[in-house]
Design a protein around this nucleic acid. Structure first.
Length: 393
DNA sequence: ATAGATGATTGAAC
DNA sequence: GTTCAATCATCTAT
């Protein structure tokens, strides 16, 4: 704490020899010495002169931004602050991302256990440092009080000294916080890495996703709402749905032949439902179409009868289909039915599907033809002339 | 043990 | 922001 001496300033030259001299007297002898009051007053006088420099040297320490950052992080990670039953938000998010299955809960509890360990170490250390700080402060204060009998020490100076001690200890605390943060970061990165230890989606989930994919083959870009619904149905996250569709589109496109069987399977699976739904939609349209405001207007899709419906579908094979004009539900049913038709229409062999079914709506650029814009915004879910077979059902 | 399947990540393009 | 394409890392069926 040499800074105290530094702060003494101009009086230092005189004060040091005096202090030095004092040390040669026994304490009680000094206290009883007849010269003591005089000496003390001299010291006080000198001190008074240097007081200004002390006051001037008192700096306001602003809240350290780095410390604040560390504090915030520790709070966010659940290391500091109130004890939380379930780990940090990050852990919860990661748990959700990996499907939140029972298998994952093992990893999750592992993470929680490690975090608790860090938390305990942090708190023990923090307490230790605080205790040491308090002990040291009392010790120094006692010393100063003791010395104040032989030399003038103002309460302000003691306060300042305490401040210095606290600053020193808080810098140690900062190091503790820093290393705790590092430990949490390492733990978290390990945990997040563990996310790569993926689990395959459940059969049901894959089924649901495939059903959607193959029944929206002309435009397999689910809207945000559709993604959310699929995510809910499959108990996975929306981003997992997006990943799945991203992977599926690219893999399907890369090797359509390989997916032929799967496509057939899902097409057959939904064909009956689709047929019913389309029939209902057609019926609905037949009854409504002459008066419906949408009929005949530009961009709307007219379904006067089932014959037209199938003609329309046949024209799809010639790539002249304007899918974006069709409502989503009918569109998906068209996809399914078209598949069935193509199948029964026959392609020479399994791989030959490329020429009939596989082009679907894939254009020369490798994109889906109907996907005027491959974005959730332009998903044809609610086209102007859309026929809601769901509601009509 | 291995190949193929599959979910996640990354970087570029838009 | 989304999507594509390539790639990584793991799972799974053999």
């Amino acid at each position: 704490f040499g800074s105290e001496r530094d702060a003494i300033g101009p009086g230092r030259v005189m004060l040091i020899p005096l202090c030095f001299a004092i040390c040669f007297f026994r304490k009680h002898a000094l206290n009883c010495h007849r010269m003591k009051p005089a000496l003390f007053s001299v010291l006080c006088e000198i001190k008074e002169k240097t007081g200004l420099s002390i006051r001037g040297a008192q700096e306001e320490d602003p809240p350290d931004p780095q410390l604040m950052r560390l504090d915030n992080m520790l709070l966010a990670e659940g290391v500091s602050g109130p004890e939380k039953g379930g780990g940090s938000a990050a852990a919860a998010a990661a748990a959700a991302a990996s499907g939140g299955s029972s298998d994952n809960s093992i990893e999750h509890s592992d993470y929680r256990a490690k975090l608790t360990q860090i938390r305990q170490i942090y708190h023990t250390e923090l307490e230790k440092y605080e205790q040491a700080c308090n002990e040291f402060t009392t010790h120094v204060m006692n010393l100063l009080r003791e010395q104040s009998r032989t030399r003038p020490i103002s309460p302000k100076e003691i306060e300042r000294m305490v401040g210095i001690i606290h600053r020193k200890f808080s810098s140690i605390q900062m190091q503790l916080k820093q290393s705790t943060c590092e430990a949490v970061m390492i733990l978290r990165s390990r945990f997040l890495d563990a996310r790569r230890k993926r689990r395959n989606f459940s059969k049901q989930a894959t089924e649901i996703l495939n059903e959607y994919f193959y029944s929206h083959l002309s435009n397999p870009y689910p809207s945000e709402e559709a993604k959310e619904e699929l995510a809910k149905k499959c108990s996975i996250t929306v981003s997992q749905v997006s990943n799945w569709f991203g992977n599926k589109r690219i893999r399907y496109k890369k090797n359509i032949g390989k997916f032929q069987e799967e496509a057939n399977l899902y097409a057959a699976k939904t064909a009956v439902t689709a047929a019913h739904a389309v029939a209902a939609a057609v019926q609905n349209n037949q009854t409504n179409s002459p008066t419906t405001p949408n009929s005949g207007s530009s961009g709307s899709f007219n379904l006067p009868n089932s014959g037209d419906m199938f003609m329309n579908m046949q024209s799809l094979n010639g790539d002249s289909y304007q899918g974006s004009q069709v409502g989503a539900n009918v569109q998906s049913q068209v996809d399914t039915l078209r598949h069935v038709i193509n199948q029964t229409g026959g392609y020479s062999d399994g791989l030959g599907g490329n020429s009939l079914y596989s082009p679907h709506n894939l254009n020369a650029n490798g994109g889906w033809q109907d996907a005027t814009t491959p974005s959730s915004v332009t998903s044809p879910t609610e086209g102007p002339g859309s026929v809601h077979s769901d509601t009509s059902n």
